[in-house]
Computed example of a mutant assay.
Amino acid sequence: MARPYMNKIARRQMLLDTASGIVDEYGWNTLSMISLAEHGGVSRQLVYQNFDSINTLTEQTASYMFEELYTETQDILRKHSDDIVVAITKAQHVLFSFPEGRVQALWALLADNTSHNTPFSAVSRRYRKLISDLYTPMISRTMNIDTQHAGQVAWLLMMSFWGGQQLIHDKTISKTKSLELIQWYIERLVAGCKASKA
């Protein structure tokens, strides 16, 4: 039976959905032009028409997977710009709403520590900066620190955020406990900053 016709945009969407599904289930190392063709039920030629190399495929799949998390986090920070504890707690709830495979794939992307010369590490650094930049203004304002320092603190906070998710994955703590701990951690960090400035 022939596949129904898809226009270029719908076909690309289908390929990115399929690529994301591969990464969610098997990890980044299994994503390839061949695996995408096989899982998508399309020819390799069609895959190459949409992605000229594995680097392009990896980068665009990462962008596709990251976009929802980024957009929802951005919206939360805009709505709760005056309360860093509420903002980060709500952002963690967004992460909890994702399937486990997606969470692990995003964690692998953000926590990549391979050679700086690989395309994957370049994508990883770009998204680490995007996330840090999201939180930097709020941290700078809340903790009364300069932008550079706030950007560094932002990433340290995000590592705590994702570390809590890893503890959940390892079944060391519950989601509820993770939320309690991150809230406790941020409250004390903010209080310490305010005390040191007094």
Rank of each mutant, 00 (worst) to 15 (best):
S32F: 00
T172A: 08
S53D: 03
V153M: 15
G164K: 00
Q49P: 04
I76E: 14
P99A: 10
R102F: 09
A108C: 04
Q166C: 11
S63N: 04
M158T: 14
R102G: 11
S174Y: 02
L157P: 08
S35F: 00
D82R: 06
A122D: 02
Q60S: 07
P137V: 13
A62T: 05
I182V: 12
I145D: 05
Y5K: 15
V23A: 11
I145E: 03
A195T: 12
T114A: 04
A111H: 02
Q74R: 14
F98Y: 12
Q165L: 15
F161N: 05
T71I: 11
G163I: 02
N55R: 11
F98M: 12
V123R: 02
R78I: 15
S81W: 08
G21I: 06
I34H: 09
R128M: 08
S97T: 12
F98Q: 10
L181D: 05
S63P: 00
S124H: 00
C193G: 13
I131Q: 09
H80E: 14
W162H: 06
Q148H: 13
P99R: 06
S124C: 00
N117I: 06
H80Y: 15
H149L: 14
T136N: 10
S132M: 01
Q148C: 04
A191K: 07
V94L: 14
L106G: 05
K197G: 10
E180V: 08
R125W: 01
K171D: 14
L95N: 09
I145A: 09
N144Y: 04
P4M: 10
